[in-house]
């Protein structure tokens, strides 16, 4: 199993509950905004603490409320691509990409499929939305993740950019063979990229 997630979380006045056991490939959390999809990603990444439940990814227990296990985010090896990219504004693209391993030379071959070689000396504020998202994917990949969390990776991009990023995600799913947990509210996107689709209701 790549993702085994059972969790409950009360956030404000809504309850998020999810019970999911997924094999290899890409798993899509699909549902309207407000269903708590991003909160699920945050809980898998360790940025938000579930009230109860367990989170296991690729056989490793990241969180288990009853056993008192709660790995800090830096030990979960999540490659989290945030919807808003969250590039570090005070670091150039190159240093954003190298953030996880500042001592390592930048492994451009590994992220060649993203087409960001030309952007290395730019500041994040000088990137378009599509460029920023590709850099964010590259930064996550270069952290040697054990799995990927993608939050609306195709939202607010034009058709050409959506195609580029879709191809990149397919590459990660089929060539790098990383387990992927992806959030979307777009049915076409879900059908194209997902091996299985988990509906979440608001």
């Amino acid at each position: 199993m790549s993702f085994e997630i059972r969790l409950r979380k009360r956030l404000g006045d809504r309850d998020i509950a999810l019970d999911l056991a997924a094999g290899a490939g890409a798993t899509i959390l699909f549902g309207p905004s407000g269903a708590g999809k991003t909160s699920v990603l945050n809980m898998v990444a360790g940025l938000l603490r579930p009230d109860a439940g367990t989170i296991r990814v690729a056989g490793e227990t990241l969180f288990d409320a009853s056993a008192g296990i709660d790995l800090p985010p830096e030990r979960r090896r999540a490659g989290y691509v945030f919807q808003d990219a969250r590039l570090f504004p005070h670091l150039r693209v190159r240093d954003n990409l190298r953030y996880a391993f500042p001592g390592r030379p930048l492994d451009l071959a590994r992220i060649a499929f993203l087409g960001i070689d030309q952007l290395l000396d730019r500041w994040p504020r000088a990137l378009s939305g599509g460029e920023a998202r590709r850099v964010a994917i590259g930064r996550a990949l270069l952290s040697d993740p054990a799995f990927l969390l993608l939050d609306e990776p195709l939202s607010s991009l034009d058709a050409a950019r959506r195609e580029e990023i879709s191809v990149a995600i397919e590459h990660l799913r089929d060539v790098a063979r990383l387990p992927i947990l992806m959030v979307t509210h777009d049915a076409g996107e879900a059908r194209r990229l997902g091996m299985r689709i988990v509906p979440m209701d608001a």
């Binding site: 945050n42 990444a45 360790g46 940025l47 800090p72 985010p73 830096e74 979960r76 090896r77 999540a78 490659g79 989290y80 945030f82 808003d84 969250r86 570090f88 504004p89 953030y99 996880a100 391993f101 930064r139 996550a140 952290s143």
Partner: peptide, 13 residues
């Protein structure tokens, strides 16, 4: 603070 969270997911203490 979300940038700090992003840095944590990248392995930073």
């Amino acid at each position: 603070r979300r940038l700090e969270g992003a840095a944590r997911t990248l392995g930073a203490s």
